[in-house]
Simulated assay, not measured.
Amino acid sequence: MAFRGWKTLAGAGFGAVLLGALAGSAVADDTLKLTELSPNGADACFGRVYDAAHLKAYPKQKVARIFFYYGHDPVSRPNEEPPANQDTSYNGFLTTTVRGAKKPEWASSWCNKSDPSDPSSGIGCGMDCDRSLASLKVDDKGKLLISGLSPDVYLDPDASESMSKAEYARQQLGSGDDNFKLDPMPADTCKAEFARIDPIDPALGDPLRVRLKPDQPFCYGRDYDDAHLKSHPNQMTQSIRVFRGPIELASFAADGDKANWPDGADIAVSVTTRQKGARVTQTYSCQGEADQWRCAASSKMSDFSCDITQKEIFLKRGANGTMMLANPNSSLAIVDLCSKAAHGKTKSDDKVYRLQAMPQSACAP
């Protein structure tokens, strides 16, 4: 993805709409149905780590470590935000580490018989956006054969158009990354491998849904001094506030559902730029997604009246009680979100902010 570290709908399978008939019967009753992969219905793990001799003999293979987990989500953790409209049909999880990489990449899928009426048919694994992950088969020795693995399995569907050819080729898997044969392994081995993707940082503390209560106001912000602005000449933001005040609390009290907090929570973002010096405020409506809040610009209580629902920001817990705000798509209210200047990718330094907790008075109008 273009904005590493912040999950969007195209990445990691969170919050996306599932397509195809395969999704309907995967783990609806919490039972693993594919006995070839899991004879006893328990979570199953397959993996292989290639040694230096193998990699030297196969220079077109980028993958140095590969694991496939058939079972329940090994990546999401209890202290993350639950995905919006969480879908339990994902039952196949692939993770690979390419040569020289410090941690793995991963993809989620749902796996079923290619032909449910034919017990001898192979296993197909589908992904979001009507894509295929791979075909699976277990041989007579219990090894898992993976074929048909697309080299762009970890890339967004539109990556070929949004990336240069060189960058697209760099992020793809190699031409030799297919037809893998994986050994059966204990489920804990796969869980440990997937844990390498996003290790828990104790300094992060509770997720935002726990730290921030539905019936309590909050105020986070940052004021940038002259020294900082001088060293960041492309930064427009002089002061920023993210808050929930009486208006946002009343809105959630009237229409919100505490059981699904933070889905439907309104937040306000105010920005003062050093060019104009006037504060601009925009309201966003949020939902929990993975370890972040995904917030779409709202017409409620905003300075703008055009259709801005596709303008988004992301909130994420930071270390030691801070809050991170990401603005990857020029969706922050630095300029009129209805103007042409607000379209396209953010080109300035106004992309990611580390905000400190502030007294509520610091966010007052």
Rank of each mutant, 00 (worst) to 15 (best):
G11T: 13
G13A: 11
A16D: 05
A21V: 07
A23R: 09
S25T: 15
T31W: 03
T31L: 06
T35W: 04
P39F: 13
A42I: 04
A42W: 07
Y50T: 06
A52R: 09
F67W: 03
Y69H: 14
Y70P: 04
E80N: 09
E80K: 01
P82I: 08
N85W: 09
L94I: 04
K102L: 14
P104M: 04
P104F: 06
P104E: 01
W110G: 02
K113M: 10
K113S: 13
D118K: 03
P119Q: 04
C125L: 10
M127I: 05
M127P: 00
D128H: 11
C129W: 09
S132T: 13
L136V: 05
K143D: 09
I146H: 00
I146S: 00
S147L: 04
S150G: 08
V153T: 12
D156S: 04
D156Y: 07
E161C: 02
E161N: 08
M163Q: 10
Y168C: 09
Q171E: 07
S175M: 07
N179T: 15
K181L: 14
L182M: 02
D183V: 11
D183S: 14
P184R: 09
P184T: 04
M185L: 14
C190H: 01
K191F: 00
A192N: 08
R196M: 10
I197S: 01
P199H: 12
A203M: 13
R209M: 07
V210K: 15
Q216S: 08
C219P: 00
R222C: 07
H228F: 15
K230Q: 00
P233S: 00
Q235R: 05
M236T: 10
S239C: 04
I240Y: 01
I240R: 03
R241I: 00
G245C: 01
I247E: 12
E248D: 12
E248Q: 15
A250R: 13
S251W: 13
F252E: 00
P262H: 12
D263E: 14
A265G: 15
V269F: 13
V269Y: 12
T273N: 11
R274E: 06
A278P: 02
V280T: 05
Q287R: 14
Q287W: 06
R294G: 08
R294T: 10
A296F: 15
D303S: 13
F304L: 02
C306E: 11
Q310P: 00
Q310M: 09
L315W: 11
G321I: 14
L337T: 05
A342M: 11
A342S: 15
D349I: 05
K351P: 00
R354V: 14
L355N: 09
M358G: 01
M358L: 15
P359C: 04
Q360A: 08
A362V: 01
C363A: 05
